[in-house]
């Protein structure tokens, strides 16, 4: 078994480290306080990227699920499953940081804000996706079931967003004045987004690799019996 630590993985990890450090510096030191948000703007530098990865990861889960059901190539299923595992971590981070941000800015932990609600449901759908696999009687069945769940979930999330939007039109939520952010905040946010995206890609490829390794080991073990 060859060591798949190709040179670019090392380079990517190095770049991710540097980007993370820059993003951290930008978020905690470089970025000034925002007029309305004050210091809570610094929370958004980790919250927004986590939420972004939560969405991207789920997009990839759904896309790969469609490809898996269509082409029946296990590699799509492996990619979908790995993306779901990494995505669940980032969705949890988005939820936790979102809730704490709400507490620090609005004064309560939870409100039925459309984005907060859709993220929570997205988190539950991720959970359902991963659980249906582990409870399936066979691996191949679990893969199919999970793909079905992912596709239904992908269609469902926008509907949830619309529904909670409508709900909040009836009961106006506390809103942040969404004026144009100063370019400086946008720049820090961009660096943060880049760092998180790269981190996601690295974690994703590592997880995929591990799953492939796992399968190889299982096959070897089978042939040994």
């Amino acid at each position: 078994m060859k060591n798949k630590n190709t040179p670019w993985t090392g380079v990517a990890i190095l770049i991710a480290f540097v980007l993370m450090a820059v993003a951290l510096y930008g978020a905690l030191v470089f970025s000034p306080e925002e007029k309305q948000l004050g210091n809570t703007i610094r929370i958004l530098y980790v919250h927004v990227p986590s939420a972004w990865i939560a969405l991207v990861a789920f997009g990839i889960v759904s896309l790969c699920s469609v490809l898996f059901l269509w082409k029946r190539n296990l590699k799509w299923d492996t990619l979908a499953r790995s993306s779901a595992e990494v995505g669940l971590v980032f969705t949890s981070l988005a939820l936790i940081s979102g809730s704490i941000w709400a507490r620090s800015f609005w004064g309560w932990w939870w409100t039925w804000d459309p984005r907060l609600t859709s993220t929570l449901i997205l988190w539950l759908i991720y959970l359902a996706y991963l659980m249906v696999r582990s409870y399936a009687t066979e691996e191949s069945r679990g893969a199919r079931y999970a793909a079905v769940v992912a596709i239904i979930g992908f269609v469902d999330v926008p509907i949830i967003y619309l529904t909670t939007r409508l709900w909040n039109l009836a009961h106006p939520p506390p809103t942040v004045a969404r004026g144009a952010l100063d370019p400086i905040f946008v720049w820090v946010l961009m660096v943060s987004l880049a760092a998180f995206t790269l981190l996601y890609i690295i974690l994703l490829t590592r997880t995929v690799e591990q799953k492939n390794l796992r399968r190889e080991i299982d096959q070897l073990r089978q042939s040994l019996k």
């Binding site: 759908i125 359902a128 249906v132």
Partner: peptide, 23 residues
């Protein structure tokens, strides 16, 4: 249908059903 083919069907159906049924 999916839940009936898993090991923990009583718990699997709510886990799958409720998030999607939210709207």
């Amino acid at each position: 249908t999916i839940a009936a083919n898993t090991k923990a069907r009583e718990i699997m159906l709510p886990i799958l059903f409720i998030p999607v049924a939210v709207p």
